[in-house]
Design a protein around this nucleic acid. Structure first.
Length: 233
RNA sequence: UGUCAGGUUA
């Protein structure tokens, strides 16, 4: 068994430093902002191992990660498909007290959801006190991806009842669940919610409605939506 | 306005 925790086993960085890295090393130690940007650069470039080593170096040098740092290393773990690494960063989240940050929470839900499935994502979701629309929509989308439209529709109804903001992405995801289950009744029901939210002319939402009605076999409803669509050019 | 999340396996 390997005890080589990424967090604890901070290996010395041999190898060649690039110029930017050398300049960077001369910056003030406490500049978490600059470290976050270096991590972001590596993440954007797909240099996931550099993200991890940069995080390790932060800890080595006594720079405290902040609520902007953790979502990025969690996302990196997801891209590396490493649950082991993700769990170590999850430990960091708990240790450093960032577990109530929305960005951290959504990164955790995505990490566990993509690597372990919706059940694991739901565990994080349920421990999240102030769920925003992104949290809800992520779990919704995971149910749709796993072809569990019944769970998705139930969850959407809970979302509405919770008073969370219902935005266009949440609606489009829930509408997709109705199409997947070929449930015209549920689809029309959500269409009413769309109207209450004043989002029936949103491009994403109206496209979802159109596809849902076609999936459900209602050409008539589909035509009505189509005739009211904003961008038919 | 100093840095981060959900549509994208269409």
């Amino acid at each position: 068994s390997q005890n080589s925790s990424v967090i604890c086993a901070l290996k010395s960085h041999s190898g060649h430093s690039t110029l930017t890295q050398q300049v960077f090393e001369e910056m003030p130690l406490s500049d978490t902002f600059a470290w976050n940007n270096l991590i972001q650069t590596h993440l954007s470039n797909g240099e996931f191992n550099h993200v991890v080593s940069t995080y390790q170096r932060m800890l080595l040098l006594g720079v405290r990660p902040d609520r902007h740092t953790l979502p990025r290393v969690l996302t990196t773990s997801r891209h590396l498909r490493s649950l082991r690494l993700g769990k170590q960063f999850h430990g960091q989240v708990l240790k450093l007290g960032f577990c109530y940050d929305h960005y951290v929470t959504t990164a955790l839900i995505e990490l566990y959801g993509r690597l372990e499935g919706s059940d694991a994502a739901k565990r994080i979701f349920e421990n999240t006190p102030n769920k925003n629309s992104v949290c809800w929509t992520l779990l919704l989308a995971m149910y749709v991806k796993e072809e569990k439209p019944g769970l998705a529709i139930d969850l959407f109804n809970q979302m509405v009842a919770s008073g969370a903001e219902i935005d266009n992405v949440a609606l489009a995801t829930a509408i997709g669940a109705c199409g997947q289950s070929k449930s015209l009744r549920e689809g029309r029901n959500i269409h009413q919610t769309v109207k209450r939210c004043g989002l029936e002319f949103d491009v994403l939402v109206s496209n979802s409605l159109l596809n849902m009605y076609l999936d459900c076999g209602s050409t008539r409803d589909a035509r009505t939506v189509f005739n009211q669509m904003p961008s038919k050019d």
